[in-house]
C-alpha cells in the first residue's frame, strides 16, 4: 500500500467532506427546523459560485470576491425564503419538492441568461495556486488546504452558534415548538428567514470554494444536492453534529472508494473485472453506507430529540 497516496486521498476526502458539510448544514437546519424540503439548496450553491466568479473577474481578487459574495448569496437566500419558501411551509412535502424544483429551473435559467451557457473559470491568486509538500513526497494543492481550514472554521463557528448563543437556543427551541417560541415573544418568522439566509450563505460559500477547482457552471447544484441529502439523512435530519460527521464519512468513503476500490477488488478478481466493477461500486458506496446506517438507525446517526 502506498501510504503517501493514502494520506493525500484522506485529505482530499476530508476536503470533499467539509464542502459537503457546508451545503448540508444549511439543508439540515432548514429541513430539521422548518420541516421544509429545499431541492433548490443546490442552486444557491451554484448562485454563490457564479456571483463569486463574476466578482473575482471584475475585482481581480478571489478572497475579496468571496467576502462580498457571501452577504449577496445570503440575501438571495433571504429573498427566496420570503418570496417562495414561506408560502410553502404549511403545505406537505410534495408541494415543497414541486415548488423548489420549479425554483431550480428558474435559477438555472436566470444563471443561463446572466452568465451564459459556458462555465466560468475562477482564477486563484498565485499564493493559493501552488502546492504544499506536507511531508516527504505527499503534495497537496494549497487551495485544498484552504478549503479544509475554512470548512473546519465554519464547522466550529456553527457549533458555537447553535450550542452557546441565544440565537442557537432559539433555533433549537423553534425546531421543537415554534408556537411556544412565538407565544413567548419571539418573531419566529424572521428567525426562520435568518436561518434560511444563513444556510444559503454556507451553501454559497461551498460553491465559491469549489469554483476555482471545477468552474462555476449551470447544473453544478444538481450534483451536490443529492449527496447533501444523503449526508443529512445519515447524520439525522436537523442535527448539526450529525451533518458534520456524516459529511466527513461520505467525503472520505467516496474519495477512498474511487481511488482504492479497484486495487481492493483486484485481490480477489481479475484485473479487468476489478477495473470494470470498481467504478460502478464506488459510485454506489455512499448509498450503500446510507442503507446500512438506516438499517440500524432509521433516524440517522444523531436524530435530534425535539419532541
Amino acid at each position: 500500500m502506498d501510504y503517501t497516496l493514502l494520506i493525500v486521498q484522506m485529505l482530499n476526502g476530508l476536503q470533499l467532506g467539509l464542502l459537503l458539510f457546508l451545503v448540508a448544514s444549511g439543508l439540515t437546519l432548514v429541513f430539521g427546523i422548518l420541516d421544509f424540503v429545499n431541492l433548490a439548496h443546490g442552486s444557491i450553491y451554484m448562485v454563490g459560485a457564479f456571483i463569486c466568479a463574476s466578482l473575482t473577474l471584475w475585482l481581480g481578487n478571489f478572497l475579496l470576491a468571496v467576502v462580498i459574495a457571501l452577504p449577496l448569496t445570503g440575501a438571495v437566500g433571504y429573498a427566496i425564503e420570503v418570496l417562495v419558501a414561506r408560502r410553502l411551509y404549511d403545505k406537505d412535502h410534495l408541494d415543497h419538492v414541486l415548488g423548489t424544483f420549479g425554483l431550480i429551473l428558474v435559477l438555472d435559467t436566470l444563471a443561463h441568461m446572466i452568465w451564459g451557457p459556458a462555465g466560468i473559470t475562477v482564477p486563484l491568486p498565485a499564493w493559493l495556486d501552488g502546492q504544499v509538500e506536507i511531508f516527504d513526497g505527499a503534495v497537496i494543492p494549497t487551495f485544498r488546504l484552504l478549503i479544509i481550514a475554512v470548512g473546519l472554521a465554519v464547522a466550529g463557528g456553527l457549533f458555537w452558534l447553535v450550542n452557546y448563543t441565544k440565537l442557537g437556543m432559539l433555533i433549537r427551541a423553534g425546531a421543537s415548538n415554534r408556537t411556544m417560541v412565538a407565544a413567548l415573544g419571539v418573531d419566529i418568522q424572521t428567525l426562520f428567514a435568518l436561518v434560511f439566509a444563513l444556510g444559503a450563505m454556507l451553501a454559497g460559500l461551498a460553491g465559491m470554494l469549489i469554483a476555482p477547482i471545477t468552474t462555476a457552471s449551470i447544473g453544478m447544484g444538481g450534483q451536490i444536492i443529492i449527496t447533501a441529502f444523503v449526508v443529512i439523512i445519515i447524520g439525522g435530519i436537523g442535527s448539526m453534529k450529525g451533518a458534520f460527521i456524516a459529511a466527513l464519512l461520505v467525503g472520505v468513503i467516496d474519495t477512498m472508494g474511487r481511488s482504492f476500490l479497484d486495487s481492493g477488488f483486484a485481490l480477489f478478481m481479475s484485473r479487468d473485472a476489478a477495473e470494470t466493477a470498481a467504478p460502478a461500486v464506488s459510485a454506489m458506496m455512499i448509498y450503500i453506507l446510507m442503507a446500512a446506517i438506516l438499517a440500524f438507525k432509521p433516524q440517522g446517526l444523531f436524530p435530534p430529540k425535539v419532541r
Binding site: 437556543m169 427551541a173 421543537s176 415548538n177 413567548l184 425535539v306
Partner: peptide, 22 residues
C-alpha cells in the same frame, strides 16, 4: 407571559437554556 397547558418546556434545551432563550 404564558404558562401553557401541558407546560410545553423545550425538551431539547437545558433548564438554563429554557429560561434564557426567550
Amino acid at each position: 407571559g404564558l404558562v401553557p397547558e401541558g407546560r410545553q418546556i423545550f425538551p431539547n434545551l437545558t433548564l438554563e437554556e429554557n429560561l434564557i432563550a426567550t
